[in-house]
Nucleic acid binder design. Structure first.
Lengths: 340, 340
DNA sequence: CCCTATGTCCAAAGCGCTTTCAATTATGTA
DNA sequence: TACATAATTGAAAGCGCTTTGGACATAGGG
């Protein structure tokens, strides 16, 4: 069933049927209903390829999926993708993904853009001075960045959470509890969010004249395995930290295992605050000791980005160039006064 | 730059240029070269949407990505996707993904199919009596299944590894080493591969008159966390197993951590064989005790599936309905004679 | 030398939509 | 009653490609 057949069946022109379907105002409501009913009955679906050709819109947003070691297993990416996908499905858009080696991302992005299969791009895992930005800006195709690129001019649309403030606040809380020896189990050092989170901690500490020594910061993939390793190392230090910040509840999972193995008690011997991306598998309140967290939904961010991207493509609604979401500091049981 | 402009520039008809580009035989070689050169110079790229409309082929293959708890973090899926993607990129195809709740997969698959954005489908994570099969078969769109569906007629195209034989062989090896008390750390119980792997083990054991008791089989997500938990439970049994099979090196990672914590020695106290999907992050030879494994590349399987799907769409080459890959049994240091 | 193959190339007809431009009818307004 | 205006609807022209059905040479066969 195509438009022509449908319109003949209704005794209308293709024009009118098309307009009725696409919500144009200049069509009689009675007619529109008749059309809509016929669509239901016949199961008519417009041919996407034809729509694309006629409108120049592909109806899909593209993203490059980092695929090589170091990224592929990232549970956070999956969660974010779920948000993107949710919204995309709702708006009948598609996600076109191009898997790529992280070293080849700029080229992959370009290929995706000129392939003509997407009308907007999305990128994540921003790094400091990210080379993809220049490429994206040269492309004349809408895009949004999740995160920011430390050190680059903020002249690109992004949605990010205020990592700096989140970790500043978290550190501040721990300082107020009397802690002075801090450690940070962070994500990969080159990623923007990791840089900002560290900066947040450093800023809070320096207000009290404290510093965060290099060996009290761990940078790694955000797996529980890595969390465990990092914490084990901290515990072996002569003056071990009493306040630990984690960039993810996944890292926290491993870190806490290390604590347990060492026979240490959360909140009593060591206070821990983790950033909670609201991973459904890993709710901070379900930890044996409920975790104090800075919370911000990764899935919601994904959905919002999809919404903005699709809105831009459809040319409905306009959006602020930048969105910076505040993370919520939620105090649970993993934080307590510094031991003396 | 479009076809029309390009052909005018060359003083040829669109027909000829189109034919030259698509490798039709009825065009003079000299002309073809001239065209190809012009394409290089002008950077002409055919408009995908127009091609799609004219040919009816979308140039992309679709898959539903399980997104809800229980799947989203699956490192194995990422690896498989990398294979799919690699081949897709090579053939200038796209991957269109539709994220979906696992409970909603049938509907998601249908939406994807009728969206007109893909011309072939791929599904994985096959379950016993998988309901998606009936839907796929009703769809008149090429598809391939990774894995099989236990209990369903094998009247659908699939690519699978011979899980049963792989685990049969692995169990056999352990039997020859004198082991009699077996345990299996398996994937989710409803998944086909898990069923077959268990069957393989059971078959090998029953040849010696042995059985695999229910509490010696663990079914869970294939994370190292789960591997650790499973092994811990096995170790608490009065007659603890001496031979353990793991459905993934990821599970093995956790299992071995449990062993270490219990002060047990791999190969000496407990022999372990894991299935190795060749995850780049987790090479069995890099374990502190190199792992005996059954090996089969998940990435290669992904690439092969993409190749078949794309080949079918392009109508080049024909493929066997079924491919069953043998896994390789590779003996390393994690297996040894049964302790007495 | 005529006729049939064979090799090349082209005009034009779609593919199934959207959208411009125009026509037609209904609705007010003076 | 006549005319401007708004409300509906249609015809037809693309969008950029593929492909069918010839056209026109040139070559080979008798």
């Amino acid at each position: 069933m195509n438009l022509k057949q449908l319109s003949q069946l209704l005794g209308l022109s293709q024009t009118t049927v098309s307009r009725a379907l696409n919500g144009y105002p200049e069509v009689n409501e009675a007619t529109r209903e008749r059309v809509l009913r016929a669509v239901k009955e016949t199961g008519y679906r417009p041919n996407k390829a034809a729509q694309r050709l006629a409108t120049g819109k592909a109806g899909s947003i593209g993203l490059v999926m980092p695929m090589a070691p170091g990224h592929q297993s990232d549970i956070h990416f999956g969660e974010f993708l779920a948000g993107l996908g949710e919204e995309a499905v709702r708006q009948d858009f598609h996600l076109v993904i191009m898997p790529s080696d992280p070293d080849d991302e700029v080229a992959a992005l370009r290929r995706l853009a000129i392939s003509g299969n997407v009308d907007a791009l999305f990128v994540a895992y921003m790094r400091a001075h990210d080379p993809r930005l220049a490429m994206l800006k040269s492309l004349a195709m809408p895009f949004i960045v999740h995160g920011r690129s430390f050190g680059s001019e903020p002249d690109y649309p992004y949605l990010d959470i205020d990592n700096e403030t989140a970790f500043y606040d978290a550190a501040k809380l721990l300082l107020q509890l009397g802690h002075t020896r801090f450690a940070l189990i962070n994500g990969p050092a080159h990623l923007d969010f990791a840089i900002r989170r560290k900066n947040g901690v450093v800023a809070a500490l320096s207000e009290r004249g404290l510093t965060l020594s290099k060996n009290c910061v761990s940078h790694s993939l955000m797996t529980d395995e890595q969390g465990l390793i990092a914490m084990e190392q901290f515990l072996q230090m002569p003056e071990r930290p009493t306040a630990v910040l984690c960039s993810s509840t996944v890292l926290a999972l491993g870190a806490i295992r290390a604590l347990n193995q060492a026979g240490l008690k959360l909140a009593e011997d060591i206070s821990l605050i983790a950033h909670d991306d609201e991973l459904p598998l890993l709710k901070p309140e379900n930890f044996s000791v409920p975790l104090t967290t800075t919370r911000s939904s990764l899935r919601a961010a994904g959905a919002r980005i999809a919404q903005r991207l699709i809105g831009t493509v459809k040319e409905i609604g306009s959006y602020p160039e930048h969105e910076l979401w505040k993370a919520e500091l939620i105090v649970r049981a993993s934080t307590g006064p510094a031991p003396r």
